[in-house]
Structure formats: structure tokens, C-alpha cells
Amino acid sequence: MSHAQDLPGWAALATAALVLLGAALTLIGAIGTLRLRSFFERIHAPTLGTSWGTGAILLASIICFSALGSRPAVQEILIGVFISVTTPVTLMLLARAAIYRDRTEGKGEVPPRAAPRRPD
């Protein structure tokens, strides 16, 4: 726990604020998966954690390790890029799976296909 005393004051405060912000956003998103009523409403909730929740904590990590001087910390950007590219893919696939299941079972408020698909 000695590294916390080595940090300059502004870096410690910025890290603390950003970590709290990111964790709070992630928690609100997780609460959203509990409280919202239908699946398509719930699919919006995790994006809170994956957009600015992740972004704030990564920024805190960058500030913390750059100020400690152990490394010029930019590796966290890799996680940021990775998360922001992969989250839409997973959520899109999940939404398509859900809409497919709803349509085959014929329930839910899902609108029908916009146009008949051309034969591939």
C-alpha cells in the first residue's frame, strides 16, 4: 500500500474520482438489468458499463500508473479499443438471437421482417 502515498495529490484525487464514477456507472447498468421489464429494454443496460464505465476506470488506471512512473501507461487503450469494438458485436448477435427466438415462438412485441429475404 506504499504506492498510494507516492502518488502526487492531483493524480490520487483524479484516480479516485474516475474509479468511483466508472464503478457507479457499471453498478447502475447492472441494476438496470435487474429493474427493466423486457429483454429489449435490458439489452440497453450493460452498455453503461461498457462505454463510460470502462472508459473512466481505464482513464483512472492510465493516470495512476503514468504518475507512478513505472511505465508510460497507454496499454489500457488496448482494452478500451477492444471493449468498444466487441460490445456492439455481442449485443447485436444477442438481439438477433432474441428476435429470432421471439419470431419463431410467435410472441412478444417484435415487428415482422421488413421485407422477404432474397434467396441467397
Binding site: I43, H44, T47, S51, S84, P88, L91, M92, R96, I99
Partner: peptide, 28 residues
Amino acid sequence: LACIVTSTPGTAWVEHAPDTGVLLIHVL
């Protein structure tokens, strides 16, 4: 566009029909 729409909380990309170009999104 799919990345933008999905990673924005409150809108989710659901389906895109490539032949007609109609995009279906869900809005919270």
C-alpha cells in the same frame, strides 16, 4: 454505424435488411 448505435446506451441495433436497407433499432 452498428458500433455507434449499439455502444450508445438507449439505442440498440436489432436488424438490418441488406436488400431494402431498412434498419430496425430498439429505443429505450
